[in-house]
């Protein structure tokens, strides 16, 4: 099977999961975070279902296979450091998530529902990524110029 068709279908499974689970809905996500108010604990079940399948599935893959079907090797994250970038970035992400109610994995599938608010959010995320990339490239350069 073609690699791109495969990626499209796997993306489809992801998008369907996001839609069925309720992660696609900012009102639901914000209610999950609102324990003191209109709390909706559903997202615990999203996390539980996702982790159970991924945990078991990953173990099966890494035990049985030396390489994925379409590629010569698994591309796994190599970073190990728990540093300011990781914690600071995660904190900033969490604040943005709490303000908007969307995360990237929820918003991309939501584009398919055709609401302009989703497109505005995704455009802002892309702007943030572009600015962060630029800032990181600047930070990585030595001061002399």
């Amino acid at each position: 099977m073609n690699k791109l068709v495969s990626a499209f279908l796997i993306g489809g499974v992801f998008g369907l999961g996001i839609a069925v689970s309720g992660m696609i809905n900012p009102a639901k996500v914000l209610n999950f975070f609102d324990i003191a108010g209109t709390w909706d604990p559903s997202l615990i079940f999203v996390m539980g279902g996702g982790l159970a399948v991924a945990f078991a599935g990953y173990r099966l893959i890494f035990r049985r296979r030396k390489a994925p079907l379409f590629e010569p090797s698994f591309a796994l994250p190599t970073k190990r450091a728990i540093d300011t970038e990781l914690v600071g970035g995660a904190a900033v992400f969490g604040i943005g998530w709490g303000i908007a109610g969307f995360c990237p994995g929820g918003a991309i599938p939501a584009l398919g529902l055709g609401y302009s608010q989703t497109a505005i959010f995704v455009a802002a995320v892309i702007a943030g990524i572009v600015v962060a990339r630029f800032a990181r490239a600047r930070l990585a350069q030595p001061a002399a110029a």
Binding site: G89, V92, I95, G96, W97, P104, A123, A127, G128
Partner: peptide, 14 residues
């Protein structure tokens, strides 16, 4: 504002 913070945060937070 939330989207922009999400973009910055996910980039640095990996």
């Amino acid at each position: 504002v939330g989207g922009f913070l999400v973009g910055i945060g996910v980039h640095f937070g990996g």
